[in-house]
Design a protein around this nucleic acid. Structure first.
Lengths: 205, 205
DNA sequence: ATAGGCTGGTAACTCAAGTCACCGGAATGC
DNA sequence: GCATTCCGGTGACTTGAGTTACCAGCCTAT
């Protein structure tokens, strides 16, 4: 196994040393829920390898907000941990994921001590703010066909493949709608020549 | 006129001194656009008195995202200023507003020097993140009647009055819809006994 | 082999919201 | 005075999406 340092080489050695002393490295299987709405947070995750999906949810209906990828952390955990607030979102590992868990009470000290850690979290906040704003704009201005296509493109980028092994049902859940609608809109995208449906898979053209 | 210190008494004297040296206090009339999408930011505003509305926009259609109130700043300006990115939102003064403008290049130094300023911006990020998430949830899960009612309640809180002097057209713009629809939904709320329409005003019951 | 589960397709319907076209009243300006 | 502008109401229509209720093709486990 690679060391923390190898994953986070751009962070200062002093911080890595602290992480090695107080962080808990943990490997988590794909599709595991690691944060639930209403949950209080004592450990803030930092992704070393893999990725995590962050969702909002309301009475069965869910919406994918953004991904947490290598070297990134969950700012919902960050504020929830620092301010002892309950989380408003839930998060699931997308693939097998390697994390280092940081005790929330140390975090406060670390961001003050290491400017580059402070910058990291500012950047994350900025990035998530931008993602949420993007999501709002999609919800407000784009119809489902455009949202679906963007979603497929993003999936393709994530997986590094133009052929996606994904169920209509899952797409529906992540876009906050239902399977029948995805089925209908997928057909539309197919007729427009933007995608091709394969058995149990989708190809982006 | 009150001094900067009187408005921002909870911030450390050292920072106030810096503000007095490098900040520009400015009074701005109501309904003035102070930030435009695509604009680069050199000065980060901090509201001393009054309030600012922040919007997203796409081809004529707008949506109110949140307010910036006393002692708060605009984190879009903050990141846009620090990272030299263009703004993705636009902002308008809601009332006559007194600001202190902070040079973006000094800001970087200040957040590192004054932990309480750093905390202020973390808190603002957190707050805006929560607002955006709230907006997403409203867009996704609530119908317009509920969104409208929440909007009216929020207006009432802001203005400190249960009678709102506001046009259907403006409401429509801030909720990202059109006047006719507001007219229709207002009637529904009125029938439900939640509001009362007065000539050129709305009373919340 | 067959029953049941997962996957996706489809038709028919409902509903919320946006669009279009128009109206009437109040206020304002010249 | 009259024209114009702002404000809000309303009916008729369109459209995108969610709902309901099915169906068929698979694969797999017993």
């Amino acid at each position: 196994m690679k060391s923390i340092k190898e994953y986070l080489h751009y962070l200062p050695q002093e911080f890595i040393t602290e992480l090695e002393a107080f962080g808990i490295v943990k490997s988590i299987a794909a599709n595991t829920e690691i944060l639930r709405e209403g949950q209080y947070v004592k450990l803030i995750p930092l992704v070393l390898q893999g990725s995590i999906k962050v969702f909002t949810r309301h009475e069965e209906k869910e919406l994918l907000l953004y991904y947490i990828e290598n070297g990134e952390s969950c700012i919902m955990s960050f504020t929830a941990g620092l301010k002892n607030n309950p989380s408003k979102v839930f998060a699931i590992t997308e693939e097998d994921t390697l994390l280092v868990l940081l005790p929330a009470d140390k975090m406060n000290h670390w961001v003050k001590t290491f400017p580059s850690v402070n910058d990291l979290f500012y950047n994350l906040y900025d990035q998530r703010y931008a993602s949420l704003l993007d999501t709002i704009n999609h919800l407000l201005y784009n119809r489902l066909d455009q949202r679906l296509y963007k979603y497929l493109e993003e999936q393709s980028r994530q997986k590094g493949s133009r052929i996606l092994d994904i169920r209509h049902k899952q797409i529906a859940a992540e876009l906050g709608t239902v399977r029948e609608v995805i089925s209908r809109v997928m057909k539309k995208l197919e007729q427009e020549g933007k995608v091709k449906q394969l058995p149990n898979a989708i190809e982006i053209l």
